[in-house]
């Protein structure tokens, strides 16, 4: 068979390979939440592989309450104009028109995010219908595969955004990796039951079992606040890191951002992680996840 049998003869946009391909390029990198063009430039200077444009970081969404929605298009545009790295932006779960607006603005990735208030209690966005790729959160393997079936081109752990507490991200990355390892031990017959138990399409379950990995890139998100948090996530098997409130809610954002970038690249070298962890000033003030009422937990949004 020709190696290019499935490749179009003339330039074609929006294919699965093109959508998943951008996430492949972000691997080993840090994606930072920014709320102004100035913060976006600080993030780019620190070595961010991409920025997430939003009006309020998760810590402020928690503090201020109310309905959290897609950001103002002017604000997203300002950040697109300020940096040369890819720009992501968040749409509410199920809010396909917010996603249409973000695609029209030219963002490079849409995050269908539980950090915003869900707009649909039953359905996520049909992401196959878009040229722009989507990243979605997942707490375990079944949830990740349901999102991929809907067209997600990248998966991240949900964590518990805006808390500065990494415990939920740890739980989700461990659950995802353990789920993948378990599938690899099953035979063809058992994979049918596994698909039923995971509530995920059988063909995707088989694909993961054979490859020993998700068919898309896996990042971590939610509560990462220090270089050591980032390095731990990478050692647990994440392929890159989202940092939300952890940078611009800290004492010295530029230095902390650069330190987290370096700790993500040299995640397996404790000498480097030690060195970049020195003298960073105050980290963001954290929230103990156990004290959060269920109504304020973001990770339980989406299904």
């Amino acid at each position: 068979m020709s190696p290019h049998a499935d490749v179009p003869a003339t330039p074609t946009t929006g294919t699965d390979r093109v959508k998943r391909g951008l996430a492949e390029q972000l691997k080993g990198g840090v994606i930072m939440d920014v709320v102004t063009p100035e913060q976006a430039r600080i993030a780019e200077d620190a070595g961010a592989v991409a920025v997430m444009a939003l009006e309020r970081v998760p810590a402020d969404i928690r503090a201020q309450g109310g309905i959290a929605r897609m950001s103002d298009p002017d604000m997203v545009q300002g950040i697109i104009d300020a940096v040369s790295v890819p720009v992501m932006a968040k749409a509410r779960i199920g809010h396909f028109v917010e996603a249409q607006v973000l695609q029209a603005l030219g963002v490079d990735y849409v995050d269908e995010s539980e950090v915003l208030t869900p707009a649909d209690e039953a359905h996520h966005i049909d992401k196959h219908a878009f040229t722009v790729p989507f990243v979605c959160g997942a707490t375990d393997l079944g949830e990740a595969l349901r999102r991929i079936a809907e067209g997600a081109a990248m998966i991240r752990s949900k964590g518990e955004a805006g808390t500065g507490n990494v415990v939920e991200a740890t739980r989700h990355v461990r659950a995802l990796r353990a789920g993948i390892r378990r599938l690899a031990t099953l035979d063809e017959t058992e994979l049918f039951v596994a698909a039923k138990e995971l509530r995920a399409p059988h063909d995707l379950v088989v694909e993961v079992a054979r490859a020993g990995k998700l068919p898309v890139v896996l990042f971590t998100a939610g509560g990462i606040a220090t270089p050591a948090d980032a390095a731990m996530m990478m050692q647990l098997g994440a392929e890159g890191v989202f940092v939300g409130s952890g940078i611009f809610k800290s004492g010295d954002p530029a230095q902390r951002a650069a330190a987290i970038v370096q700790a993500t690249t040299f995640f397996d070298d404790p000498d480097v992680v030690t060195k970049v962890s020195r003298g960073l000033g105050e980290p963001m003030v954290g929230i103990n996840v156990d004290t959060l009422p269920d109504s304020q937990r973001f990770a339980t949004r989406g299904w």
Partner: peptide, 24 residues
């Protein structure tokens, strides 16, 4: 990213027909 694409590209010095090429 909306303009990222895939196509086939002929390369001088690479026999065997056009290559699968992904541009991101």
């Amino acid at each position: 990213q909306a303009e990222s694409f895939e196509s086939r590209i002929e390369l001088a010095g690479v026999p065997g027909g056009p290559l699968s090429a992904v541009f991101i």
